[in-house]
């Protein structure tokens, strides 16, 4: 019994050592967020399992230039998605101020894009979004501001795991979370950051560098 305990202890010590080695030795890797699907295939009579991480579904929305953009627009790019509305009096100004910093840091870098979805499907037309983008200081199409039907936009928010709701009691009429979702080139979600907090922005910037180095 005693030796059994001792053996267990040694095994524990070894695994702690291994874990601490792997997290210190290698470079930081970003997680895959969302439930992955496991496909079973039979190859040459053997069962092979294939794990595919969660990816956001394909989409098409009208942008601030009244151009229909789709998931193809973000091909070979990493991008940051969020949900906002132009008349939002609560968290949006802080969120967009912080995202603007990231946008300005990656000026002239075509590997990085930004996608802001408006949840005010009643008021935020492309013209309103265009004016908002210009006033914010967004001058090129690296940062897309999109609108769509309530069903499409709120459905998309669910796909990003961001809470959005039309709510008369909320300031401005809509309730939503201020997450920045970091999406990789294959549309997998690789990070979620509170867009209203400055230290979360530092974390996002660091993680973006990790993701840009990934193949």
């Amino acid at each position: 019994m005693k030796s059994y305990l001792k053996f267990n202890f040694i095994a524990l010590a070894i695994s702690v050592f291994l874990i601490s080695c792997s997290s210190n030795g290698n470079e930081k890797k970003l997680p895959y967020i969302g439930e992955s699907t496991v496909n079973e295939k039979t190859v040459d009579g053997q069962t092979v399992t294939d794990t595919i991480p969660y990816a956001i579904p394909s989409f098409s929305f009208l942008n601030q230039d009244s151009v229909m953009i789709t998931d193809k627009t973000f091909e070979n790019k990493i991008f940051i998605a969020n949900f906002f509305f132009t008349n939002c009096p609560s968290i949006c100004p802080t969120m967009q101020r912080n995202l603007l910093q990231v946008y300005e840091k990656y000026k002239d870098d075509d590997r990085v894009a930004f996608l802001s979805h408006s949840i005010d499907f009643k008021y935020d037309s492309p013209a309103v979004l265009k004016s908002y983008a210009e006033k914010l200081g967004v001058t090129d199409d690296r940062w897309q501001f999109v609108m769509g039907s309530k069903k499409d936009i709120y459905g998309m928010a669910d796909s990003y795991f961001v809470y959005t709701k039309e709510d008369e009691t909320a300031p401005g009429g809509y309730d939503h979370q201020g997450y920045f979702m970091l999406i990789d080139k294959n549309k997998h979600i690789r990070g979620a950051y509170d867009g209203t907090l400055i230290d979360q922005i530092d974390l996002l910037l660091a993680d973006m560098e990790v993701l840009l180095k990934e193949q």
Partner: peptide, 12 residues
């Protein structure tokens, strides 16, 4: 939220 921690505002 709108006017910023240092009163810097946001764009226009």
């Amino acid at each position: 939220n709108c006017h910023g921690a240092k009163g810097e505002g946001l764009g226009t």
